[in-house]
Design a protein around this nucleic acid. Structure first.
Lengths: 342, 342
DNA sequence: CTGAAAGCGCTTACAG
DNA sequence: CTGAAAGCGCTTACAG
C-alpha cells in the first residue's frame, strides 16, 4: 500500500498537520521540522492522494471535455491545445468523445457531475432541451468552444462565422467566379450551419450573383459527405466553377470527388475550405481555407474557463470573438471564361 | 450546494446506511424504504460524489492515457476506440498528450499516481530509465498499445511489426520493383523503428534485391518528415521506383513531395504506407497501406487493462499480437521497365 | 432488514 | 510555530 500522510508524520515524528503544512508550502514551519518532513516524504516515496484532497478542498482540478469527434483534424488539434493549456495550469482533462449520441452525452454529463469536475468544455452545438436542462442543473462552469448553441445562456469562444463565410465567398467572387457551389453543415447548427450558410448567401446577393439551388448541398462536416455532396453537384447540367465547403474535411472530400471524376482542382473547379486544419497542407493541391485560430481558440477557452472557475465574474458573460483569417494556398484560381479563351 | 447522502437520508427518514444500500443496489432493503429513498433522491436531484466513493472504495474508475500526439490520424483513431471501450465499461479517461517531452510525461505519471488512476495506457516507446523507474514504482497496472518498448517487462498489444514491414516490402517486390526506397522511423524505437526497418531489409535480401543506402532515410512519422526525406531521396542520381514509408503520414508527405517535383504516384514512383489511418482515403491517389487493426487494438488494450485491474493474472503476462493486413489502394502499380516499353 | 460508528486520506479552523 | 480534533461525503463491517 502506498504510504499515507500518517505514515509520513510517524516517520518524521511530527503531527499530520505539520506534514500537511509542508505539503502545501505554508510558512510557519520551522526549518528543521520542514527538513525532517521532507526527508520522510522522500524516504517513503510519499505522494498525497488527490482524491482525499479533492474531497476536503472541494476542488478536483478536473475539466470535463466533450468532443464531437476526436478523429477529426480540427477537433484533435483544438483538443491538443486545450490539453496543453490545462496542463500548464495544473488541470487535467476528462475526455469524452461523442458521436451524435445524446444518451452517451447525458451519461457523461452525469459522470462529470459525480466526478465533481471544476469546469466543462463542450465543442458541439447540438444542445437539445434535455441536455440544456442537465447542464443548467449541473451548476458547473461551462464554456463552448468554436460553437455557440442557439438561444442558450452559455459563453462561447468563437469566430464570427457569418463574416468568415462571407469573406470566403467573397474571395471566390474576387477571383471572378460567378457560379459558386456550397457545401454547408447542419442547418440545425446555428454557428457552423446557419451562420456560414447566410454568410455565403449574402455575399452572393451583395454582389448580384445568382444562387443556384442545385449547387447548394449540406453535409455533416466529414470528408465522406463532402465527397457525396460534390457528386450531386457534379451531376447537374451546369457545373459551378468554384465551391465553398464549410469544413476542410468536406472540402477535401469535394476535391477528391472532382478529381475522381476526371476534373481538376483548381483548373476546372476552385475549392475553398473552412477551419484551417492540418489537412489543408496534407492534400494536393494544398487547400485554401478560411481559417479559425485553432490554437488560440483552445487556449482562450481554457483560460476563460479557469476565470469562471475562480469566480472572476467581471465581464465574463460575454463571448470571445476571435479573428478568422483567409489562407490562400493552391486550390483556387482566377476564373477564366473558356469561350473567351478560344 | 449539491445535496449529500445525509440530506437524502433525512428527507427520506432513514439512515445514511440505508441510502447507501439502495444507491449500490444491495438487496436486504424493504421495498417501501427503497421507494422512499428513491423518491428522496429524485426530489433532491442527488447524485453521489464519485470523489468520496473513490476514497473509500480505493477505486477511481479512471484510466490515464498517454498519447504521443492526438493530432495524428493514427493516434486519434486509437484514442477514440479506447474511449469508447472504456466508457462502455464505466471507466473514464484522463488524457495526456505528450510530444516528446519527458518532463511533461513524468509530471503526468505523478498526476496519475496522485489521482490514483486504476490503470495506465501508454502509446509510445521512448521509455528512458527515469520513466521506466517511475512506472515501476507506481505499481499501477499498465499496458502499452501499438508499441513494445525495449527490454521492459510491460505488456503490449501490438502487431508483428517486423512481419508487417516484411510483407509491405514484399508487396512492392511482387509488383516487380527492385529499386525500393524506405522512409523509416526512429531507430531508438524497437517496434516502429527497428522492427519495421529490419522487416524491410530482410525482405530485400531474401529476394536478392540490392539495398541502396541513399534511398533509406529516417523520419519522425509525421507528414513533414516524410516530405523532407523523400526530397533527399529524389535528390539522388538514381531514383527508386517505389517507396515504403512506415507511417501513413510520412507516406502522404512522400507522395506530396513526389507530386510537387512533377513526378506522378504511382506512375513514376509507387508509395506504400503503414498504419491504416483515415488519411489513406483522404488523399489522391488513395494510399495503399500495411494496416494495423486500429479499432481492435484500442479495444483489446482496454479490455486487457481491465483484466489486469481486476487481478486476472492468468496468462496476462503475454503480449497480444494482432494481425496486420495489406490494403491495396491506388498508390502502387506494377513496375514497367521504361526501356522495354519503347 | 436496519442503523450507529468507524474509517478512507486528507485540510483547516481552533487552541495553545 | 505546532498539534488534537472535526469534517469532507461516502462505504462497510458490526450489532441488533
Amino acid at each position: 500500500m502506498a504510504p499515507k500522510i500518517k505514515d509520513v508524520a510517524k516517520y518524521a515524528g511530527v503531527s499530520v498537520t505539520t506534514v500537511s503544512r509542508v505539503l502545501n508550502g505554508e510558512k510557519y514551519v520551522k526549518d528543521d521540522l520542514k527538513a525532517r518532513v521532507q526527508k520522510a516524504i522522500d524516504d517513503l516515496g510519499y505522494s498525497p492522494s488527490h482524491i482525499a484532497r479533492s474531497l476536503v478542498r472541494r476542488k478536483t482540478n478536473l475539466i470535463g471535455v466533450i468532443v464531437p469527434d476526436v478523429t477529426s483534424s480540427f477537433y484533435s488539434t483544438i483538443l491538443s491545445t486545450i490539453e496543453k493549456t490545462a496542463s500548464l495550469n495544473d488541470y487535467n482533462l476528462l475526455v469524452c468523445n461523442i458521436i451524435e449520441d445524446t444518451d452517451k452525452e447525458l451519461k457523461y454529463l452525469q459522470v462529470f457531475k459525480e466526478m465533481r469536475v471544476d469546469g466543462i468544455i463542450i465543442m458541439h452545438e447540438k444542445i437539445n432541451e434535455e441536455i440544456r436542462e442537465m447542464i443548467m442543473k449541473l451548476g458547473i462552469p461551462i464554456i463552448f468552444s468554436s460553437v455557440k448553441p442557439k438561444d442558450q445562456p452559455f459563453i462561447s469562444v468563437i469566430i464570427d462565422d457569418y463574416s468568415a463565410a462571407y469573406d470566403a465567398t467573397r474571395h471566390l467572387i474576387d477571383l471572378g467566379h460567378s457560379r459558386i457551389g456550397f457545401i454547408g453543415g447542419d442547418m440545425n447548427d446555428v454557428t457552423s450551419g446557419q451562420n456560414r450558410y447566410f454568410g455565403f448567401v449574402h455575399a452572393l446577393s451583395d454582389f448580384g450573383i445568382e444562387q443556384v439551388e442545385a449547387h447548394i448541398k449540406f453535409g455533416d462536416y466529414k470528408t465522406r459527405s463532402g465527397y457525396d455532396m460534390m457528386k450531386e453537384i457534379l451531376a447537374c447540367r451546369t457545373r459551378p466553377t468554384a465551391v465553398f465547403a464549410v469544413s476542410d474535411d468536406m472540402a477535401v472530400g469535394a476535391m477528391n470527388c472532382i478529381s475522381d471524376y476526371g476534373l481538376s482542382v483548381p483548373g476546372d473547379i476552385s475549392v475553398i475550405g473552412f477551419d484551417g486544419s492540418q489537412l489543408t497542407e496534407q492534400v494536393r493541391p494544398r487547400l485554401s481555407s478560411m481559417e479559425q485560430p485553432i490554437l488560440e481558440m483552445g487556449k482562450i477557452t481554457v483560460l476563460k474557463l479557469l476565470d469562471l472557475i475562480s469566480g472572476n465574474n467581471a465581464t465574463l458573460k460575454d463571448d470571445v470573438i476571435l479573428k478568422h483569417m483567409l489562407v490562400i494556398r493552391d486550390s483556387c484560381k482566377k476564373y477564366v471564361n473558356r469561350e473567351d479563351q478560344t
